[in-house]
Structure formats: structure tokens, C-alpha cells
Design a protein around this nucleic acid. Sequence first.
DNA 1: CAGCAAATTTGCGGGCTCCGCAAGTTTGCA
DNA 2: TGCAAACTTGCGGAGCCCGCAAATTTGCTG
Lengths: 202, 202
Amino acid sequence: MGLRERKKEQTRAALSWAALRLAVERGLAGVTVDEIAAEAGVSPRTFNNYFASKYEAIVWRHLDRFAHVADQLRTRPTTDPLWTALTDAVRAVFGTPDPAAPGPPAEWTSGVRLLLAQLELRGEFVKASATAERELTAAVAERTGTDPDRDMYPRLVAAAAGAAVQVASEQWLRADPPVALASLLDDALRQFAAGLPDPRSV
Amino acid sequence: MGLRERKKEQTRAALSWAALRLAVERGLAGVTVDEIAAEAGVSPRTFNNYFASKYEAIVWRHLDRFAHVADQLRTRPTTDPLWTALTDAVRAVFGTPDPAAPGPPAEWTSGVRLLLAQLELRGEFVKASATAERELTAAVAERTGTDPDRDMYPRLVAAAAGAAVQVASEQWLRADPPVALASLLDDALRQFAAGLPDPRSV
DNA sequence: CAGCAAATTTGCGGGCTCCGCAAGTTTGCA
DNA sequence: TGCAAACTTGCGGAGCCCGCAAATTTGCTG
């Protein structure tokens, strides 16, 4: 990867980071594109070369991870059962459950929690993860030999994985005392794989 | 319901309908708020009294249905198993599967399909259904005796239902020959309830 | 290492969005 | 019938987002 592309990724990360930090500090509405650009040391116009909106910039960091789940899934042996492979893929991206892993400082998570409560970001989240989910749909279709145009199955699986990431992230922000995100993800995937049985009947 | 509220609902529906129709005709970017307002016979400023954006106006009609699933779920006897009750609730809102039900004209569905392919609307969709999903989460929590703040379960179920509506709607638009939306919804919910088993192993 | 082509950044301009505010209009009720 | 509450509307303004073209930076090649 040449200097050019490295610098681009660096700028993109700086913008996304600045956007998230400023939004946590001042609230979603209290930050303008101009400020984000200034914080990252580029012109406001350049901001829009990287992101179509400030919302997109804010969610980019998180979604960059989910985008790699499909890649990981493709590296798993096709002899593994689907849900085993899928769980492993998610683990590879988000980390293995480790109860001792410390969470980020409470000040930060409470700020992020407030942010994510904003509906604009929920929407942006899904919008941005649509690409990742499409990739995942394709990977699941290959692995299971289904046709994504005719069968809903691969899209339902991808949607379930996306929902798991979404719900687990929320729970992670809400958890008191803090819990490792990886454990929550594991749990959510397990419940999906079990068909979300009514806990009363267990 | 007084004349006042009836007129409000009428205006809201007219705006949403005008927004959808114009967007199908000219594409999402090719329609402005001014045109939508003119089409509905109100001032541009009034449009924003009803909807915060044109995207919100477009998806409102569809989401108005999903918003009532939680209400329906609450009317089902608590002796019914959760997934039975949930499927019934969805059926009550979206109709019972009827293979003979004719779909809308191909011209319209292809237009809507193009619209929904736009990521902006995907995002708006979820954003708008977040409220409905929160309601559904609460209803599921009551029924299953779980605590939505501590257990991910009710939120996972609500997310699954939302994903079912989403994926089934997509498939409905894509289906050729046309299929009834209700059948697809039924199918999607069934798959979720079964834990999305790998079709190879069936 | 000079110099060129391609990629990137930047400023400018413009159309559009969304909202607060206050004045005007309609509705429900007594 | 008349008044208070609710709704609509125009205005003004801050901000967003993008196309365009000029300026700058980078990677490559002779």
C-alpha cells in the first residue's frame, strides 16, 4: 500500500474519530462539519470527499469491523456447520469472549450511549451496514448453496448477524457493571441459532 | 375523532402518498419538498410540520403498519406460545397468507424496488421502525417475563421481527412471478423460529 | 533527479433542507 | 356567537452537500 493510500486511510480515520469525539462532547446536533474538518486538519470540502454526511463519519469506525465478517466467514472450512463458522467469524473480528477484558471509561460509554439513542444514527448505522450485510449474504449463500435471489435464507441469516451486532452493542453500552462485547455477541448469536425460544419454556 | 384530527391524518397521508408517488416517478433525488407540498396542496413549511424529511414521508405509509404489531401482540392470549402469538399478530396487521391475492402492477413494484434500493431509504426505514421495535420489545418482555434492560432476549425477538418484515418486503418486490407479502412474512418468521437451520442439513 | 500524468485537496458558488418565530387562519366548545 | 387552542404559512437563517475548476501532492519513468 503506497503512501497515497495510507494517507487517505489516515485522513478518513482522523475525520471519523474527530466526528465521534466532538459528537460525544457536544451532542450530535452541536457539531458542524466545519468543526470536524478543522479538528482533523483538512478543509470542510475535503470532509465531503470522504463522507457524504457527518452521521456517516461517526458510524464508520464501528462499521469498519462488521464489514470484515464476510471475509472471515469465507476463510472457515466449509465442513464446519454454518452457525459455528459464523460465530467464529464474528469472534475473529470482534475478539474472543474474555471476561477479564476491561471496558472503556464510563464517561465515554455514557456519551456514546446518548449518541446512539439518536434515531439519526440508528438509521445511519443500518444504512452503512447494508453493504456489509450484502457481502455476508453472498458468503452465506455460497456456503449453503442457496440462491440469494430466490431464497430469503441467506438474507435472513445476514440480517440476524447484523441484528446481533446491533443489539449486543446496545447492551454493551447499557451494561452495568461492564461486560465484554464479545461475550454479548456470542450470546446473541447463540440465541438466534436456537430459534429465540421462549425463556419461560426452558 | 374530531374533524381536526381527521384532517391531520388526511394531510399526513396525502403528503406521504405524494412523496412516494413522485419519488417513484422521478427518482428519489429528482423530487423536492416543494413539489411534494404542492402535490398535496399545502405550503412547503407545512410539510415540515408533519415530516422531518422527505425520506420520512416516503416510508411512513409502510411503517404505519408495522407500528401496530405490538398492539396486536398484546391482544393475544398469554397462553399461546410466543412465536405463535407473534406470527398471529403479524398476520393480523399484514393479512393472512392467501396465494390467490394479486400483487400490485409490475410498473409500480419495479418503481418501488428502485426506490428501496437507495440506501437513504433503507436507513430511514430502520430509523422509523425503531419506535415500533421498541414497542414490540416491551410487549415481548411483558409476555415472557424478561427484563428488557438486562436481557437481550426481547430485543432480539423484536429485531428478528423487524428483519423479517424488511427481508420479506424486499423479496416481495423482487419476486417474479408475484407472491403475496403475507406468505413471505410467514415463511421468514418460521425460519427465525426454527433457528435459521442450514438448509443443507434438512 | 527532472518532469509529467494522475490523484487529491481546496475554495467558490448554488440549490436544497430543516427549523424557530410570529402573524394569520381554522376549529372546537361553551 | 365568540373565544381559546390548534394549525398553517411566509420569512429568514444556519447548515448541508455537491459540481466544478484551479492548485497542490504523489508515483512513476526516462
